[in-house]
Design a protein around this nucleic acid. Sequence first.
DNA 1: CAATCCATTGGTAGCGCTGTCAATAATCGT
DNA 2: ACGATTATTGACAGCGCTACCAATGGATTG
Lengths: 343, 343
Amino acid sequence: MARQRTTSGKIRLTEVAKLAGVSPITASRFFRNPAALSASKRERVESAAKELGYVPDLAARALASQRTEVIGVLIPSLTNNVFSDVLRGIYDASQGSRYSIQFVNTRYSILQEEKLLRLFQAQRPAGLVVTGINQTSESRAVMEAMNCPIVQIMEIGPDPVDMMVGFSHNEAAFAAVSHLIAQNYRRIGFLGARMDPRVQRRLEGYREAMKAASLLDPDLILTTPVPTSVTMGGTLLSDLISRVPDIDAVFCVNDDIALGVLFECQRRQIQVPDDLAIVGFNDLEFMASAVPALTSVRTNRYEMGRNAITMVMAAIEGNRPSTPVVDLGFELMIRRSSLVRRT
Amino acid sequence: MARQRTTSGKIRLTEVAKLAGVSPITASRFFRNPAALSASKRERVESAAKELGYVPDLAARALASQRTEVIGVLIPSLTNNVFSDVLRGIYDASQGSRYSIQFVNTRYSILQEEKLLRLFQAQRPAGLVVTGINQTSESRAVMEAMNCPIVQIMEIGPDPVDMMVGFSHNEAAFAAVSHLIAQNYRRIGFLGARMDPRVQRRLEGYREAMKAASLLDPDLILTTPVPTSVTMGGTLLSDLISRVPDIDAVFCVNDDIALGVLFECQRRQIQVPDDLAIVGFNDLEFMASAVPALTSVRTNRYEMGRNAITMVMAAIEGNRPSTPVVDLGFELMIRRSSLVRRT
DNA sequence: CAATCCATTGGTAGCGCTGTCAATAATCGT
DNA sequence: ACGATTATTGACAGCGCTACCAATGGATTG
């Protein structure tokens, strides 16, 4: 005999169909492809669903259809300001669509990323957003097997898994450092923390710009693997100054470091930019408010998130974008902290 | 006749059971309650699962068991620094458990919150974390009907839906303002933005402290409904000074405002704390680095997230905490920006 | 030694929905 | 007007897993 499961007063599709006077299958179609119904049935199902307060059971739907309406998002950090803007863009773009977003945190570990990717694979997401272009070959294999649209975000590079939205960290850093050189600075330090792949590429851009001007000196480069923070910015500047007392500018891999540098300058009575120019990266909101206002590289983080989801959703619906790789670029926001050097 | 569904090379529980030489039901039990199996079968199923790389189908599991292993988290903002710490705590605590976290964003709207709560209800989450104590009565009804552990975070108050982890914003603000009064400041301004319920309670704490010292003056209170930012801190200070030129201290509802105030002081050559004392709220990392270091109220955001998830998980497993309301308190971090006033 | 108990294990029948195909009604072309 | 094509609708049979109950066998007890 049948077990006596608690059928919980939940309204099922069958109830809606019965009230609407159609078969369950027709009611089901109403939710997936209303255009396939005749106008009269459509209205009947719609009002029946509303009357009963029907909410589809996602698990049953996923099981029967062998797919979900979940877009998985893998990001390396929840703490970093940079990602919160991306997340906001992702959220805003998904808002109002039928897709829901599932965030997971890779903690800057490509092995963790691989693991999470496998987990997603088992859940058949409708689409995927992954951070960066440095996945393990295992991860790549999983992604390629996954048969769903995938967008890599934060940077662009050759050989996309599927689609990409980002910008060139290398070029952005090159532009920032070239600006300092053009402003007549010569001993330009590089301060970096948490040297993730994108930060590495910023360092490369710095190197290229310095080399092109014959100003490259390994002593000017100071990095630490520890996570970034404002305090760390101060520490790094102190360390760099004691090693290279004659620096006249610093390029910081992010704005937290730049703010820490500014505070350290205030503490040491170093005039900015007269004694030391500062350039940051990302153009967080506070950079324009600081005293002096701090030059930074504006990156379109919100748009990155927005575009990524928009592209994934379009691809799920079968409208793959004509250009799978979108370069959102960057903009150098020149402010007083990198004013032309007095000679 | 049967349809020809693409059975996708996926490994099912049946395969595992067959390889292990047990019935599917026994294999199923291995994943849900391994202790119920004899040691020999347990090992056989375990190795079979590993050999085949079996990953359970969550949708099927959810459908059959009428529950999920998802903990839903409703937060008002993804951008706010404060929440990123909470999220991190939530993430860390869920790491390694069988529960997965589903974040949704209420955008500081209790109506949006209500909608999302209904959505969750349809998905039968194993547990829920909601922000704050100001839900609509509809939301409360939904939560009470949901029959799963629920933790309200960020603040504590009377009449919890189920459990609570937080602290008293009122008391924290009271302590901060009392500190300024004790330091001999008298004309203490209040600067607030995005007046969400918790910020309102901080204002209340300010009012109580000022009133107790007979210093309350409505002109000293300046708030704006727009979202908070560093720039807004500067703007608010400017506005307050033009209205009340004799202020000698400001209590800022958060650290971004406080930083903006500091920058504005630097711009206007106002000495901190000699001309103006500054106290912030949350004790973000940069507060200690600023020049001068800025006093703030340290809140245990990471622990809040951690505790919330730990409590939910325990409750799901049937071990409800003995004290359903946890006050994580706060700590006034006194720094140079609120040094005792010279008279 | 029989009656009882507990620990394991298995069988049956769905959970609520949708893919596939078939059936029917409506529309069209010549 | 007739067959052919196209729009709608319905029937059937699962998707992969687990709740419930029953059965088995050995241990325990009076």
